[in-house]
C-alpha cells in the first residue's frame, strides 16, 4: 500500500501539473520580423503541389476523393485538414457571353504573350490559404486564448489549449478556420510555425514550381507585389489588382495577400469584410438601451397597482 501511494504521488502531481499547464502565463518570445505570403495568381498553374506538400509536412489526413463536378478543383474548400486549397475557375464561354458581370472583358483580353502560362480569360487559379490577418477576427473571438500571435506575427492555434467552442469558425470572414470532427479542435494553416523556428521556409512556398507562392518578410513582399502589379498593368492586364496588401482589409491588411486577375468575388473573397470585434459596441449599445427601457417599464409595472 505505502509503496503504491509513494509511486502514485509523483504521478498525481505530474497529472495535476499538466492539468494546470494551460493556466500558466508564458513570457512572449522576442519578436522577429513579420513574415507572410505573397500569392501571385498570375503565375499559378494549378498543379496543387502546395496542397500536397502541406498535407505531407503537417501529416494531415486525406479525404475520400469526391468529384466536385464543377471544375478540376475537387478539394473545394479550406478546412481542418486542407490548409492550402487551389481554386480552379474555368471560364470557357465567358468570351462569347460578353455581358458577364464586370462587363469590360472585351477590352482587356490578354494576348497570349502577356502571361506566360495561360490566358486569364479562360482559367483563373488561386492557391488559397489562411490570411494571417494583422487584426485576426478568429484570434479576437477566441475565449480560451488558444489562438495566439507568434513572434513571427503569424496567427497560430495552440492545439493543446483549444476546446473547440467554435467561435473562431464563425468569426473568420474568409471561411478558413474549421473545427475538426476527429480532433474536436479548431485547425488551420500554421504558416509552418515549426519550420519557421528552424529557419526553413514553409512547405507550400518551398515546393511551388512557379514561385506563385512567395514567402518572406511582409514589408518586402508588399514592395514586390507593387512592382509586379505595375509590370502587369504596363503589359495591359488592367484587371490585375492586389488583395490585402495594403492596410484597408480588416484595418490592418493581411499577412498572406494576393494578386488577383479579376474582382475578389470571382475568387469567393469578400471585398471589404467588416471586423467582427467592431460590432461589440453598437450591438451592446442597442442591447443596453432595450434593457434600460425594459427595466424602467418593469419598475413602473410593479409600482403601480
Amino acid at each position: 500500500m505505502a509503496v503504491e501511494a509513494a509511486r502514485s504521488l509523483p504521478g498525481v502531481l505530474k497529472q495535476l501539473r499538466t492539468l494546470l499547464e494551460p493556466l500558466r502565463k508564458e513570457e512572449p518570445l522576442p519578436p522577429q520580423t513579420a513574415v507572410g505570403f505573397f500569392t501571385d495568381t498570375s503565375l499559378c498553374i494549378g498543379c496543387k503541389a502546395c496542397e500536397i506538400a502541406c498535407k505531407q509536412w503537417n501529416q494531415l489526413p486525406a479525404r475520400e476523393p469526391v468529384w466536385a463536378g464543377t471544375s478540376y478543383d475537387n478539394t473545394r474548400e479550406l478546412n481542418a485538414i486542407n490548409w492550402r486549397h487551389v481554386l480552379f475557375i474555368e471560364r470557357l464561354g465567358r468570351h462569347e457571353e460578353g455581358s458577364h458581370a464586370g462587363g469590360g472583358t472585351a477590352g482587356t483580353v490578354a494576348a497570349p504573350t502577356e502571361l506566360p502560362f495561360f490566358n486569364p480569360d479562360r482559367w483563373l487559379m488561386l492557391s488559397d490559404v489562411c490570411k494571417h490577418c494583422a487584426h485576426a477576427p478568429c484570434l479576437e473571438a477566441c475565449p480560451t486564448g488558444a489562438i495566439i500571435r507568434t513572434e513571427f506575427d503569424t496567427v497560430y492555434v495552440q492545439q493543446d489549449v483549444c476546446n473547440g467552442c467554435g467561435y473562431c469558425v464563425v468569426a473568420c470572414p474568409f471561411g478558413v478556420i474549421a473545427r475538426d470532427a476527429l480532433g474536436g479542435t479548431a485547425r488551420k494553416c500554421t504558416l509552418c510555425y515549426d519550420r519557421l523556428k528552424d529557419g526553413l521556409e514553409p512547405a507550400c512556398a518551398k515546393v511551388c514550381p512557379t514561385d506563385s507562392i512567395v514567402f518572406g518578410p511582409v514589408d518586402q513582399l508588399r514592395q514586390q507585389a507593387e512592382a509586379r502589379l505595375t509590370q502587369l498593368h504596363e503589359r495591359g492586364l488592367r484587371e490585375a489588382r492586389l488583395y490585402g496588401a495594403d492596410d484597408t482589409i480588416l484595418e490592418g491588411g493581411l499577412h498572406a495577400f494576393f494578386l488577383l486577375l479579376d474582382e475578389p468575388a470571382v475568387y469567393n473573397l469578400p471585398e471589404r469584410p467588416s471586423r467582427p470585434s467592431r460590432h461589440v459596441l453598437p450591438a451592446s449599445f442597442w442591447t443596453a438601451l432595450a434593457a434600460l427601457a425594459l427595466g424602467l417599464f418593469g419598475i413602473f409595472s410593479f409600482r403601480r397597482r
Partner: peptide, 19 residues
C-alpha cells in the same frame, strides 16, 4: 457543445472584453 468538453475550464484562462 464543445469539441473537447473535458477542456471546458480553459474558458476561464482569459478575461477578454472584446470577445
Amino acid at each position: 457543445d464543445l469539441g473537447r468538453p473535458e477542456r471546458f475550464l480553459n474558458m476561464l484562462r482569459m478575461f477578454k472584453v472584446r470577445s
